[in-house]
Computed example of a mutant assay.
Amino acid sequence: ALLTGLLRGAHERGAAVSALFPTVTAPYRACGWDVAGVMRTVDVPTVALPRHRPAAHLSVRAGTPDDMPAVVALYERLARDRRGLLTRRGDLFDPDTTADTLPFDGLTLVEDDGHLVGYASWDRGRGYGDDAVLTVHDVLATTADAARELAGVLARWHSVTPTVRLRLLDGDAVSAHLPLEAVREHEQEPWMHRPVDVTRAVAARGWPAHARGTVEFTLTDSLADWNTGTWRLAVADGAAELTRVTAEVDLHLSVRGFALLYSGASTAASVADAGLLHATGTDPRALDLLAAGGAAQLLDYF
């Protein structure tokens, strides 16, 4: 009853999708959510980080609270080219950009001719022994040179903190310069996804420019009846639309299956193997169109 009321209120407010970090998955799966990704926090031995000769055209300095709007802008510049990342605007994040002090111990900025091209935000932690950890909240860059610079900045902590703890952003500029073979898993936080309104979710999602095609399917959503029905998904030119149709179709998708495909967490064949997609006399892989664009990822816990 609680989740039904939550979904109805979100729909009335105009929401398109929902995401959450579960303490237990079963009750959410029963209501249409499913695990769409894992937020990974890893430990890297500081001595394993690469040390590059600093790039002459870059400058490194300590950030101040006045730099936070530029930091948020750089994060959002990167987030636009990826899938699933939060905007970092609103009640969760606005206090970080208006406070007189930084929301973490330190902020390291990398600039190119005065323009921010990378940053790391971090907490020093305590001590100098074997259990000392430098916790890096973000380490993001928009150029390879800036990524190398940030890796070198973190490496220079090796004399006081044997471990750097950070959240990886798969395939980004910084990960390309980290010794991924040396990382050790510290924590994994699975997150779950669910559509609130499938038509809004499809229209607002963003789609690869090269993806093109149509597929018809019936969707069942016992908690959100406005999502239940037979739909045609049409994708072209970086956009998509979901429209109702009256035809008989061979693909029958549960809302959990929709969540997995929409977020790029699975393939149509795997969703069918899990019993969340039923195909009658047709290839279920036609619904891979709904997963076009790759997997979503989160960097923020909430």
Rank of each mutant, 00 (worst) to 15 (best):
Q188S: 13
P95G: 05
C31D: 07
V174G: 03
G206W: 06
Y119L: 09
L154G: 01
T41E: 14
A99Y: 06
A55I: 04
R89Q: 07
A62T: 11
H210T: 10
W226I: 05
P27D: 13
G14H: 02
T25H: 12
G90S: 12
A204G: 07
W191I: 08
V196D: 11
A259T: 00
V117I: 05
R126M: 04
T230V: 03
H52W: 06
A295C: 13
G152S: 12
R126W: 13
V47M: 12
A286T: 12
L109E: 09
T108V: 15
P69S: 14
L7V: 13
P179Y: 05
E76M: 12
D197R: 01
A259N: 03
P190I: 06
P22W: 04
V183R: 12
V42Y: 07
L276N: 00
G293K: 04
L140I: 09
G293V: 06
A62V: 09
P27E: 11
P22Q: 08
P195K: 02
P179K: 14
A274H: 11
V71R: 10
W33C: 05
D250L: 02
A211W: 00
D34H: 08
T228Y: 00
L116G: 12
L140T: 08
D131V: 08
R200W: 02
E76S: 14
V153G: 01
A144E: 15
P27R: 13
L2V: 14
L299N: 01
G125W: 09
S263Y: 02
A56S: 15
G171T: 06
R200A: 12
P162S: 07
V117G: 11
E149V: 02
N227H: 06
Q297V: 08
W191Y: 14
E149A: 11
A132N: 04
R89T: 10
Q188G: 13
T246R: 14
D100M: 02
L154R: 09
R51Q: 15
